[in-house]
């Protein structure tokens, strides 16, 4: 069976779902179920007794087969991310941590230096570290060397829906990488997710594209199908591109044309 392997964990689904920006917890839970995702991201927030619906631990844990992957969103330094990871592990009981350190709210680009430092520390502590990074093959390799479980380069800016703007760089990362490469951020349509999988990504992480779709559960299902199709195509082996036409039908011996 074709499984996604992250550390000692295996998953049959290659679609990872984020839980932010949904219109309600009910819709979010429907979308998570529809996606078939087995890894689901959550964020740490202060408890607010007036907003009990915000607490997603119980309802998400109740979905069979779901493992939580908390993120360190809100951290702007490695030290803050490490601290968030410790708190998150306390709550989730899961070794997965998405290291996400983006100090600038204007573009939300990940800080490579702080991300590397946090990833290095957390991997040493035994976390399954999933760093959200710019599509940089050198950084990706360095993160692999310090023991990350995967690297998660961005397709484009978080929530931008600009798709796989970094496709060429992600291809370089895939070529060099011995750990799973997972596109995280920027995807808008299932066809982009399929494209990422056809390139050889091991999984994709989608949030906004599902959360703000007209019908989030339907879109979650569409992404799941696209990811599965893209993966199947990758495994089947895509044909080589050619600069010129190569006929699929015989061009000779046509009804006496050579007569």
């Amino acid at each position: 069976m074709d499984l996604l392997q992250l550390g000692s964990y295996t998953f049959s689904s290659r679609l990872i779902i984020g839980t932010g920006k949904f219109s309600s917890a009910t819709v979010m839970l429907q979308a998570v179920r529809a996606s078939g995702a087995q890894l689901v991201t959550v964020a740490l927030r202060r408890f607010n007794r007036e907003q009990a619906e915000d607490d997603l631990f119980g309802p998400l844990s109740a979905i069979e087969g779901v493992t939580l992957m908390p993120n360190t969103s809100g951290a702007s330094t490695a030290a803050e991310a490490v601290r968030a990871a410790h708190i998150a592990r306390e709550l989730s009981g899961s070794p997965f941590i998405k290291v996400e350190i983006h100090p600038n709210p204007q573009h939300l680009m990940p800080d490579p230096i702080e991300t590397f430092e946090a990833a290095r520390i957390l991997a040493k502590e035994g976390f399954l570290v999933m760093p959200y990074i710019t599509a940089d093959p050198v950084l990706a390799k360095r993160l692999e060397e310090v023991g990350c479980a995967a690297v998660m380069p961005l397709g484009s800016a978080i929530g931008s829906g600009q798709g796989l703007a970094t496709a060429a760089m992600i291809e370089l990362i895939i070529r060099e990488s011995s750990i799973p490469v997972i596109v995280d951020a920027g995807l808008r349509s299932p066809s982009e997710a399929a494209h990422a999988m056809e390139m050889g990504c091991e999984a994709v992480l989608v949030n906004s594209a599902v959360a703000v779709a007209g019908n989030p559960p339907e879109m979650a299902e569409a992404f799941a199908e696209a990811v599965a199709a893209g993966r199947k195509a990758f495994r089947a082996g895509l044909m080589q591109k050619s600069g010129s036409a190569i006929a699929t039908s015989p061009l000779t011996a046509f009804l006496g044309a050579n007569g």
Binding site: G18, T19, G20, K21, F22, A25, M28, T41, V42, A43, L44, R45, R46, F47, D54, D55, L56, F57, L60, L68, P70, N71, S73, I87, A88, L91, S92, I158, G159, A185, L205, N207, S208
Partner: peptide
């Protein structure tokens, strides 16, 4: 005292 929960996030 800080009380933290899991909320929606990507």
């Amino acid at each position: 005292v800080e009380l933290l929960i899991f909320a929606g996030g990507g």
